[in-house]
Design a protein around this nucleic acid. Structure first.
Length: 324
DNA sequence: ACTCTAGAGATTGCAACCGT
DNA sequence: ACGGTTGCAATCTCTAGAGT
């Protein structure tokens, strides 16, 4: 049969992608090869291969992402096919219309405060403050979870704001160190909480003291109380949306949130959904609970709550391990 | 200058696994 | 049995660089 994939690739060719990506391509392409084999097909030109690809997509009912990987994989193994598979490209466009990507649901600061009080009530005081900080500064989830005590520089005479150094341990999206700021005047209550959190965190230790998975699950459970589904990205989306709602200049918000391209920044702004959710909260009388949470926030963070031996429910196994 | 795309990396979903 | 953990696959995000 016709083989579009060479028996052996140059190691330098393989080097251009990560091994995980390479494995993904390999699996996706094998699926297509198996399909050709089963159908006794031996496409002899790019155009023919293109037609078989489209057929394969339908027969195997591949999703948009799966088909995208298959196509990228084929083009990886046979770069000469690049630009010669127009039918498949069209199908991907069609799939993108049928299955649009889902974007993070924006979490405005009022809802963030509500969620934070619920987290605190469960003994997740650290995570609660980190959530508020993430919402106020628009951090990516991994950046927030990666923050360590020495990454946060306290306000000084020189710089009257908190300076957050991102990606000094784990890489940020762009792969080099970045900085963002938190102005205490922006939210004095949060500034006070952050101050206390930093004071009770040992040097070099993580502020959130939990992993991504834990964060995600806690958030999913608590956001159900509001009848919405927030994800760790929601704070970042909420940061952008709220700033735009407030009337901040889009360029300023984009710079503060460290979006390099305007296109990806715009994806995060979801004013319509945010307003719709607010209206929904009001109609279900949740708005009073949310407002109360915002007012009484500090009461949920009693003295000593950030230390391991805080009052409240017993720590989970994972927490014990985290603190060594 | 502006738009589009590939693909690397981040996030999420799922289920097997593990310790209690 | 059950809740938490882990690992893998699926899916989404976002940038660099190509194309126009």
């Amino acid at each position: 049969m016709h083989r579009f994939r060479p028996d052996r690739l140059d190691p330098l060719h393989v080097n251009t992608v990560q091994s995980s990506t390479f494995g993904r391509y390999q699996r996706a392409v094998e699926g297509f090869e198996f399909f050709l084999l089963r159908n006794d097909a031996a496409p002899s030109s790019a155009a023919e291969l293109d037609e078989w690809l489209v057929l394969y997509r339908r027969e195997a009912s591949l999703t948009r992402s799966q088909f995208e990987v298959a196509l990228a994989g084929i083009q990886f193994f046979a770069p000469s096919l690049r630009g010669h598979l127009p039918l498949s490209k069209k199908v991907i466009k069609g799939l993108a219309i049928e299955y649009p990507s889902k974007h993070a649901f924006p979490m405005l600061s009022s809802s963030a405060k509500f969620i934070a009080t619920k987290m605190a009530a469960e003994g997740e005081h650290r995570l609660a403050v980190c959530l508020l900080l993430q919402q106020a500064t628009g951090l990516r989830p991994s950046e927030m979870l990666g923050l360590r005590e020495h990454d946060v520089l306290r306000p000084s005479d020189l710089v009257p704001r908190y300076v957050l150094r991102l990606g000094t341990c784990v890489g940020t999206k762009v792969g080099r160190e970045q900085t963002t700021f938190f102005d205490p005047e922006q939210d004095p209550m949060l500034a006070m909480l952050l101050f206390r959190l930093l004071r009770s965190t040992p040097e070099q230790s993580s502020l959130a003291a939990c992993g991504y998975d834990h964060y995600r699950r806690v958030l999913a459970r608590l956001s159900a109380l509001l009848g919405v589904h927030y994800s760790p990205h929601s704070c970042r989306a909420g940061f952008a949306t709220e700033a735009i709602l407030r009337g901040d200049a889009p360029q300023l918000v984009q710079r503060r949130g460290r979006w390099a391209s305007e296109a990806s920044f715009l994806v995060y702004i979801d004013v319509a959904t945010a307003l719709q959710v607010e209206a929904e909260f009001r109609s279900r009388a949740l708005d009073t609970a949310i407002a109360t949470a915002g007012r009484d926030l500090m009461a949920f963070f009693p003295k000593g709550c950030f230390s391991g031996r805080a009052d409240g429910p017993p720590r989970h196994r994972a927490d014990r391990r985290r603190f060594g």
